[in-house]
Design a binder for these strands. Structure first.
Lengths: 332, 332
DNA sequence: CTGAAAGCGCTTACAG
DNA sequence: CTGAAAGCGCTTACAG
């Protein structure tokens, strides 16, 4: 392996001069510079990041953690990381325990954490208290936390208002829980739900509010719920159902279609989280869209600012959401 | 930051003794051991990986590169990495140039590369010639390369045979190209296509063979092709179409449905690469399934073997594929 | 503008 | 079983 010393020897200068030439952070005479560059290039020299990082206060590597890997967010995160010269290390929270988040920072591997739609607020509080952290998608209420989100209350309000304006009268909301507790995100959405219904003189009866545990792949709760709806007397059945989790909404749509229930006439289904699949199923699924790729990009930029200790204009970025009205709810 | 020295001082021993105690690779007296562990735990010591890696011959970090991030493969890769104590660094090949793959190894950041459905064979040859590399999904023909794949010829043969057995007579194959050239994977599939058709006495007329450039998100070529099919005289139109790229098959199904073409009666559509979406669209889409998560896991294990210089039982793992016959092709 | 020294946190190799 | 020395590849801080 070619080291700084090898380049120095070949160029007939000290290691320091090579370091300075390559980093360009101190003046070097043109002649020396030329010799150093020639030597480096002749030896095909590549600086070793381990050596460099051992002294630096941070190391341009971040951890991205979440329950699963969200391609759209990852793409944005990665694009920004690439521009900023950062590396991205992956972590799947289903396969790690809480201590692992912190360990990867404390052992010098990474300099900060980006949580991607993470719901475990305790874990985030634990990490955020001591290390650079940014939450992208879902966010906690931590004092001084850096977050990249949309306004969940407003988003829910938009979606539920639209359903009410269509004349729907029994509008149900199926929110997600983590370990039995609703995450902050769902509480915000519930506020929007209640506001929208109140504005239209509708009742948010307890029988219209459901909670299912957030499990990434398991569709059982959504199917059980769908079957429960199907067994109800049509006059009492909700005429609109909104899910926190997109996969659950998709499963519900499919279940209803199998039984011949007419969407969007007899019942509307929608999701609080738009995914690419929603454009492709029949009927297409109405959902709240978020600019995930841009959010990922900004979250990464924000994290870099924090890591490098540069001041942040704003620690809480709120992106505009977009109501993607599609076939599963029908026209206004 | 707490270092080895701090622990040594507190335990009243040398740094070496602390290192040996924590690594457990040399005998240490029980009494010393207890004192060291107590000190480490009291100081909440975490060994710094940069210091460690600077001396080690490899660093338990790998690069995962591909055109986009495939959740199923990543999940498998990450699970194995986690078991083996490896870190996974991401790279999006659309956002990097070829030199970046090699640079991240040569600068000591990572010790090997795992290519995920990568099609750029030249790039892989360049990397594989000098560094530990494993190809997962698609693979090149490189001498001595480590690959984790399915038998593409057999997979194509299975799918096309099924269509022929259904009585389809004008079976089209839309293969992908990279920079105008078909990747090895498509050539193998083409072999399977030709064999299946020959076995059923069908002609693989040039008018039935199409190529579209592989672009991850762009559906334009698929839609253009679909429209071209729609304009044909039904008697001359293909009665079955198989796509290399799943998104193109999905787009084609949707286009056909919009126009009222009956699937699978008038025309069958299928894909060489099964994705979760295929179970959810209407009609559900027939495709060749691969055990991506397991493939990712084995690819990661293989890469670790290579990095650590341990002998490999077999450098070419071929997993069984599975023909997922669904609604878009109908019953036999 | 350039260099010699010391150090980042750890481990390898040598000595006892 | 334990330790002092040297070194991994780089950079910071001090001197000239």
């Amino acid at each position: 392996m070619v080291s700084l010393k090898d380049v120095a020897k070949r160029a007939g200068v000290s290691a320091m001069t090579v370091s300075r030439t390559l980093n360009g952070n101190y003046p070097v005479s043109a002649a020396t510079r030329a010799r150093v560059l020639a030597a480096a290039s002749a030896l095909d020299y590549e600086p070793n990041v381990m050596g460099r990082n051992l002294r630096a206060p941070f190391n341009r590597t971040v951890l991205v953690a979440g329950l699963g890997f969200v391609e759209s967010i990852l793409t944005g995160v990665y694009a920004a990381a690439n521009e900023l010269g950062y590396e991205v290390i992956l972590m799947h929270t289903r396969l790690c325990n809480r201590g692992d988040y912190v360990r990867r920072i404390r052992n010098g591997m990474t300099s900060g954490i980006l949580f991607m739609n993470m719901m475990d607020e305790e874990a985030m509080a634990e990490v955020g208290a001591r290390h650079p952290m940014v939450q992208c998608g879902s966010a906690s209420d931590l004092e001084g936390a850096c977050t990249v989100t949309v306004d969940e209350e407003a988003a829910a309000h938009d979606l539920f208002s639209r359903l009410a304006m269509q004349g729907r009268r029994r509008i149900a909301y199926v929110s997600a829980t983590i370990g039995g507790q609703p995450p902050l995100m769902s509480l915000r959405r519930e506020d929007g739900y209640l506001r929208a219904l109140a504005e239209h003189g509708l009742e948010a009866a307890p029988a219209l509010r459901f909670r299912t545990e957030f499990l990434r792949e398991d569709l059982t709760p959504a199917l059980a719920l769908s079957n429960r709806f199907l067994r109800l007397d049509p006059a009492q059945r909700p005429d609109a159902i909104v899910f926190d989790q997109n996969v659950q909404a998709v499963a519900c749509v499919n279940r209803f279609r199998e039984t011949g229930l007419a969407l969007p006439q007899e019942i509307a289904v929608a999701s609080m989280d738009d995914q690419p699949i929603n454009d492709v199923i029949q009927p297409t699924l109405t959902a709240v869209g978020r600019p995930y790729e841009e959010m990922g990009r900004e979250a990464m930029r924000m994290l870099a600012q924090r890591i490098e200790g540069r001041p942040l204009a704003c620690g809480r970025l709120v992106f505009p959401h977009e109501l993607m009205a599609r076939g599963s709810t029908g026209p206004l």
